[in-house]
Write a protein that binds this DNA or RNA. Structure first.
Lengths: 142, 142
DNA sequence: GTATCTGCAAACCCTTTGCAATAAG
DNA sequence: CTTATTGCAAAGGGTTTGCAGATAC
């Protein structure tokens, strides 16, 4: 299996863009983080390590990583984007309560039935499921 | 079946809040809109009809409607929230491409298997599925 | 009468963008 | 050499908030 860096460099090449140290460092840092992250966390972690990358460059790099299939936008719960790396990892699923905001994470794969249904019909490669609903407590309320 | 207004008034009562004409008008407008809407659209539609409600009041009302089970946050694709009313409507599902942003909407219900799986295990009332993946075109690229 | 709600406008804050300098190819 | 990329700082733009007046109960 290719490394995330390899995947990215191929993507960059294909787009006629240029390889830069800044983007490599950001990508490397992302794949060292467990779970979700946001831009500020990423920026601070890089600074801690003495890696100098501006926020602007991070903001400009993230869409590229996403388009290359390396990360995804996980959610926008706090008024800003959270991301997670998806390359080389099993699918993530979240169940989010619209009432109280509770979020349950699934490590398990989605039901096979669902998978086949959407893959066959739309030929999508599925990466994550964000399921919205109301948790038991909030159902009593509403 | 209760009307959305009834549901909301009961919710308001239960929370010890107060019934106001502004919130009723906003709710009414939301349920007259087909499909998705955002705050600006809602605000302008209300103004067109001569209903005077400030943006601030709309922003303050939406979380209440969501908690009451009447609307949901549909997506954040354009840098701001889009909503849709969910009370009394069949479930919505979206398939979104992380590469190009394409969004396919499902009117059909989700597979039965999925439904039973999550409902049984977490006792959530499921309202919507946001599925992220890569469309056929973007899979070739990445 | 008291606590909530509204409108207004300013404040917030994450994200984007213009620009000049720098670097990749 | 040419075009992409970076960092900085300013601008942008949706959302939130402080406050004074109005309103629900």
């Amino acid at each position: 299996m290719k490394s995330e860096l390899q995947v990215f460099q191929e993507f960059i090449l294909q787009r006629g863009l240029r390889r830069t140290l800044e983007r490599e460092r950001v990508l490397q840092e992302i794949f060292e983080i467990h779970g979700h992250f946001d831009v500020e966390e990423l920026y601070l972690k890089l600074r801690e390590k003495g890696v100098k990358v501006s926020r602007a460059s991070i903001y400009r790099a993230l869409p590229l990583f996403r388009e290359a299939g390396l990360i995804r936008e996980a959610d926008f719960s706090d008024g800003h984007w959270h991301y997670e790396h998806i390359y080389g990892h099993s699918r993530h699923s979240h169940l989010k309560c619209l009432g109280c905001g509770e979020m349950v994470e699934f490590e398990e794969p989605s039901p096979q039935d669902l998978e086949e249904h959407w893959v066959k019909r739309y030929r999508y490669r599925i990466v994550a499921l964000e399921v919205q609903g109301y948790c038991p407590a909030c159902q009593q309320g509403a």
